[in-house]
Design a protein around this nucleic acid. Structure first.
Lengths: 158, 158
DNA sequence: GTACATTAAATGTATGTACATATATTTGCA
DNA sequence: TGCAAATATATGTACATACATTTAATGTAC
């Protein structure tokens, strides 16, 4: 694992043992995927002591935003960052940990009311402050550089 | 799915239904993870007709780089972009598709010689050209912007 | 030269994504 | 009204990651 630590302080050319990139685009592409993976890993490490994963955390945050109103699975899917994911199964895990409750909605029996519990709210309170990539390296950027990065990323998805 | 398509043309503020970011850092963090996911999804779509996944493709490329020498699993792990992944099982899948062969190394019977087959080389030949993020949006950047992006990403991981 | 540590690979378990399908319920329209 | 389409959720399968453990082979220290 110390090799891995070392690697984190190298440029992308060194990190990937593949000497030449065809273009800056190609390099940027690899760099982006690589950096994102790096950030996700860093965040997963921050989350580990709290016993939940990033997708579970994202769901909990959406539920806190709704609280004390319940959310349906559809609403969770709509608001989740991570694509058309399986909110149903993530809610399963949260339910098993008693961080949320799930019950059939009376007015539309197809839908399910998902509610964050007091235990869930308390967990989020404990976790407040370590989100947003703090401690993951993103704060190596100046504020202006962060603005610049946002503009570049937006352009990629245009 | 058309909603998803629409979303791809919006800024990150609109894409995530969460009105305010605490800081440009926070926004950049989310933006990075989101954009990377977007690029991976785009690339997965490009790969689908060829019947292999991105990790499988990465392994095949490393093996082509070694060809005609074999590679051990350790070497594959060392060179793979994606963390301490399970190269063993990815090689399983490639072996099942007859794109690689695997046999015990005589000199050190702990290690395994993994070799790309002619079928594997032929597949890579067919796939050459669609790698490097081409067609995934990264080429929306100018060459100079790509350089800028690379510098910013490197700084994050410093 | 035997015991212990290290290394290489494989395997098991939990989690998550992607995609397809199943099931129940509601809506809408003929 | 009644039946088909749409909607909400759940489930099954394939694939991958993360992490821990297992098994076999090799190295090393005494």
């Amino acid at each position: 694992m110390e090799i891995r630590e070392l690697k984190l302080h190298m440029k992308i050319e060194d990190e990937i043992k593949q000497s030449a990139f065809r273009s800056e685009y190609h390099k940027a592409y690899i760099n982006l995927v690589y950096t994102s993976g790096y950030l996700e890993q860093a965040q997963a490490a921050l989350f580990k002591p709290f016993g939940i994963t990033l997708p579970q955390y994202n769901i909990l945050r959406i539920l806190r935003g709704q609280h004390p109103k319940p959310a349906t699975i559809s609403l969770l899917i709509e608001r989740m960052l991570d694509k058309t994911s399986n909110a149903s199964r993530i809610v399963d895990k949260l339910e098993a940990k008693e961080l949320v409750t799930r019950k059939q909605c009376p007015s539309d029996r197809r839908t399910v009311d998902v509610l964050i519990t007091e235990k869930g709210l308390e967990l989020l309170r404990q976790m407040d402050g370590l989100e947003g990539g703090k401690g993951t390296g993103i704060t190596n950027l100046t504020d202006q550089e962060a603005v610049q990065l946002n503009a570049l990323l937006d352009k990629i998805r245009d």
